[in-house]
């Protein structure tokens, strides 16, 4: 566990040394800031984060989280540092978990900057803090899943561009295509597609409900992708 936190700490510090973190933060804060001012923070508007948390944030995350996960393993393969890392006394699982936690903490830093919004809203209105809480739980689960997907593709290639595009495509399919296809179906197929649809599972959190089904959905998928990443890393040793 100490080794995992050592690895996570390094990843986190690299974020703040590289321009990519600031690009990602800027995109995120600019888009949500503009939308917050125009949609939420205006007279007569609903005093809640729903305007942002329902659609805007999940969609931004599809774009920015692959950008913060793309270098996690790809860069180690490209520069050859993977060799020093995998011949140190750490297990493949340590490496994967360390990288995941590093990215996760960076994501939490991004999320923390948005805590300003509910605070501003309480000054000029009243905020449903329970709903704000469930929104953040949903965002953390959603982000964790996106990061595990990004990490998985990062383990497949030494090319960061390929890693970012692949994870973006998979996330876009899960976020948008599933919902679109669901519109044409009915009955059992519709239900199956609905379960694949990430937004279906996320929306309840934004509405203020922490539903166990959805929590289990995100936690299992995240665990699955982390497991697949560990296996990918292991299999790379054989090639």
């Amino acid at each position: 566990m100490k080794r995992v936190s050592t690895l996570a700490e390094r990843e986190l510090s690299v974020y703040f040394l590289s321009p990519i973190a600031y690009v990602v933060l800027t995109i995120f804060l600019a888009v949500s800031g503009v939308l917050f001012i125009t949609q939420v923070f205006s007279p007569g508007a609903e005093s809640s984060l729903r305007g942002l948390s329902n659609d805007v944030w999940p969609i931004i995350l599809v774009f920015i989280l692959p950008m913060i996960t793309m270098r996690l393993l790809s860069d180690e393969f490209r520069s050859g540092t993977i060799e020093t890392l995998m011949t140190a006394p750490v297990t493949d699982a340590d490496v994967v978990l360390g990288k995941f936690l590093g990215a996760m903490v960076f994501y939490l830093v991004i999320l923390a900057t948005t805590l300003l919004y509910p605070v501003l809203l309480t000054i000029w209105g009243s905020v449903d803090w329970g709903m704000a809480f469930s929104t953040y739980v949903g965002l953390i689960l959603l982000g964790g899943f996106f990061i595990s997907v990004g990490l998985f593709f990062s383990a497949w290639t030494s090319n960061q561009v390929i890693a970012v595009v692949c994870s973006f495509v998979l996330l876009a399919v899960l976020m948008f295509l599933a919902r679109y296809l669901g519109g044409f179906l009915s009955g059992l197929p519709r239900m199956l597609v609905q379960h694949v649809d990430v937004r279906y599972h996320y929306e309840d959190f934004a509405r203020g409900a922490v539903v166990l089904n959805h929590v289990v959905y995100f936690v299992t998928l995240t665990a699955l992708f982390l497991f697949l990443t560990i296996k990918t890393l292991e299999s790379r040793r054989w090639r």
Binding site: K2, T6, L7, G80, T84, T87, A88, P89
Partner: peptide, 26 residues
């Protein structure tokens, strides 16, 4: 182990890197 071409993390400082490696060694 010193691999061929000595791969290192370019963004880290020497002491920082050695500290990181020492922690990996527990």
């Amino acid at each position: 182990y010193l691999p061929e071409s000595a791969p290192l993390y370019p963004e880290m400082r020497v002491r920082e890197y050695l500290r990181f490696r020492s922690k990996l060694h527990g």
